[in-house]
Structure formats: structure tokens, C-alpha cells
């Protein structure tokens, strides 16, 4: 029982966009799919949902292919940045159409959410602002009966109040009916605590994949005088550095050695997800994650 991405590679005009990705999405889990612009997140999501074809590799849902398969495709929903709805169609009609194809669509909840977000369901999709297009697509995503919901940029154009509403609705519907959500966003701080698992994509590869507590347990900031810090982090996986006056901070991803005493002058703290992400994916740093 899981959605599996195996050795998925995507090449376009001789450029590698995804390089042999292996990933598993378990049921009933909230994932964060993080990556900088151009890292290949949307491409990966488009391949998973069979909107485009991978150059190589397979994607399966409970061991059944997702390529050209109604049974598996109907169990996932991708809310993408690209709008696939006809601009002239009214939102009400789009909801009805979605309900026809997915069956069991939670129409009542959709209407309730539309009310909370002040979304006029009689409007045409093309007449909506960026924020309200996002809101409409979010509402559909939260109401379809699919087991795997992929949200690509779910808060694009949303103000702080609407984002708050979305996070609450997400938790509400997730508690009510646990299913897998894969959230791809740049606002990492806002969702960090919502995630159970995290996948970080950088330079077309997966650099981190695992439970958020486990990942963060291996992410450290080592602060102190430069020489002491350098001595301590020698041969460790340093993913970034900061300097402020005479104080140096090294960011380390990986287990700290048990046999190396921590100097009194040096402080060891944990990194948060956003800081870890920024350091892991900084193009100027040569980052190698274990």
C-alpha cells in the first residue's frame, strides 16, 4: 500500500530534469516536497499524475501502473500551478464535473469552504484572480475522494488570513479522513510542523527523504570561535557556514561523532527545517547530504 516512484528520469532537449528518482509515498501521511525553483518538483508531480511521460522509470500505486490507468489515476489528484480548467466554465459546473468523474465528491464541504473563503461559485474560472484560482483549486483538492492529494504551490497568491484558513481546513479534512497529502511550497516555515515526512529535491536529485524529526535530529548548527568550530567539524558533512564578527557557525547535516569531545567554547544546536533547506540547496555551497 503505497505510491512508488522508481528510477524516474526526465530528460528534455539533452538536459536532465530528474535524475533517477526513487521515492515512496505512504498512505495517510502529510509530506513536504521541497525544492528551489527549477529543481524539478512540478515535473515530478506531472509524471506521477501521468500528465507527461517520464524518459525512464516507473510510477505505481499499490503495484499498479499510473500510466493510462483510470483505476489508479482516479485515486490521486494533483492541484497544479498550471490551470487545466476551461476559463469560460463556471465554478459550480466545474464542481459538478469533478463530482461526475471522481464520484463521492464532498459537495457540502466544498460549498462550506467556498463560503469561508468568500468565493462566489457562480463566477467563471477565468474571471478569478490568482489567489482565488488557487482557492478554488484547493477547495476541489480537499473535497475529492482521492487517496493521494498533491498540492503544488497551494498558497500561491493567498493572503495571510486565507493561508491560515487553508491550513486549518487541511487539518480538519485530514483528521476527518486521513489520506496522503504531498505539499510543495516555498513557505517552509508555515508548514514545517504540519509535515510528518519531508523530501528535498536539489539539482534534479533527492537530497533528503525521511521523517521530519529524524531529519532534523541530524541537522546541527555548531557555533563558536572559527578555529574551534573548524577543528570540531573537520571531515563532517558541513552544508553551510556563517560568520558574524569572530563567531563562526557551521551547519552540519549528519550524525555527530561520539568519540570527538565538544569544546567548551563551541555550542551545538539543532537547525529548523527552513534553515536546513536553505543550506542544503544553496547553489554556491557544495552540499552533500548523507
Amino acid at each position: 500500500m503505497s505510491l512508488q516512484v522508481k528510477a524516474v528520469t526526465q530528460q528534455f532537449h539533452g538536459q536532465t530534469i530528474l535524475d533517477k528518482l526513487d521515492l515512496t509515498f505512504e498512505p495517510h501521511t502529510i509530506y513536504g516536497l521541497l525544492g528551489r525553483n527549477g529543481a524539478g518538483k512540478s515535473t515530478l508531480l506531472n509524471i506521477i499524475s501521468n500528465r507527461i511521460f517520464a524518459s525512464d522509470g516507473t510510477v505505481t500505486l499499490d503495484d499498479e501502473t499510473l500510466v493510462d490507468n483510470d483505476a489508479t489515476l482516479g485515486r490521486l489528484y494533483l492541484m497544479s500551478e498550471v490551470n487545466l480548467y476551461n476559463e469560460r466554465t463556471k465554478l459550480n459546473k466545474l464542481l459538478t464535473t469533478t463530482a461526475q468523474f471522481y464520484g463521492d465528491f464532498d459537495q457540502a464541504y466544498a460549498v462550506k469552504l467556498a463560503g469561508q473563503f468568500d468565493l462566489d461559485l457562480n463566477a467563471r474560472f477565468g474571471k478569478l484572480s490568482t489567489g482565488y484560482r488557487t482557492i478554488f483549486k484547493l477547495i476541489v483538492a480537499l473535497c475529492v475522494p482521492a487517496d493521494y492529494i498533491f498540492l503544488d504551490e497551494p498558497v500561491l497568491g493567498l493572503d495571510a488570513n486565507h493561508r491560515e484558513l487553508f491550513y486549518q481546513a487541511l487539518i480538519d479534512t485530514y483528521t476527518e479522513r486521513p489520506r496522503t497529502f504531498v505539499i510543495s511550497t516555498h513557505l517552509i516555515e508555515e508548514i514545517a510542523n504540519l509535515l510528518e515526512n519531508v523530501v528535498i529535491l536539489d539539482q534534479h536529485k533527492i537530497v533528503v527523504s525521511g521523517g521530519v524529526p529524524d531529519v532534523l535530529a541530524k541537522a546541527y548548527t555548531i557555533t563558536g570561535p572559527e578555529t574551534d568550530v573548524q577543528q570540531y567539524t573537520e571531515s563532517l558533512n558541513v552544508i553551510g557556514t556563517d560568520h558574524l564578527g569572530g563567531i563562526t557557525a557551521h551547519y552540519v547535516y549528519g550524525d555527530l561523532p561520539d568519540d570527538r569531545p565538544i569544546p567548551d567554547t563551541v555550542q551545538v544546536e539543532h537547525l529548523d527545517l527552513q534553515k536546513l533547506f536553505v543550506n542544503l540547496t544553496n547553489a554556491t555551497e557544495v552540499a552533500h547530504a548523507n
Partner: peptide, 16 residues
């Protein structure tokens, strides 16, 4: 294309 977009968004395969 307009139909394809709508259908793939709604989990309908190309064959169908």
C-alpha cells in the same frame, strides 16, 4: 486539448 486537460485533471486516462 481543452478536453484532455479537464479529463487528465479528473483522473481520466488517455485511452478512455
Amino acid at each position: 486539448y481543452d478536453h484532455f486537460k479537464l479529463f487528465i485533471q479528473n483522473g481520466i486516462s488517455r485511452k478512455t
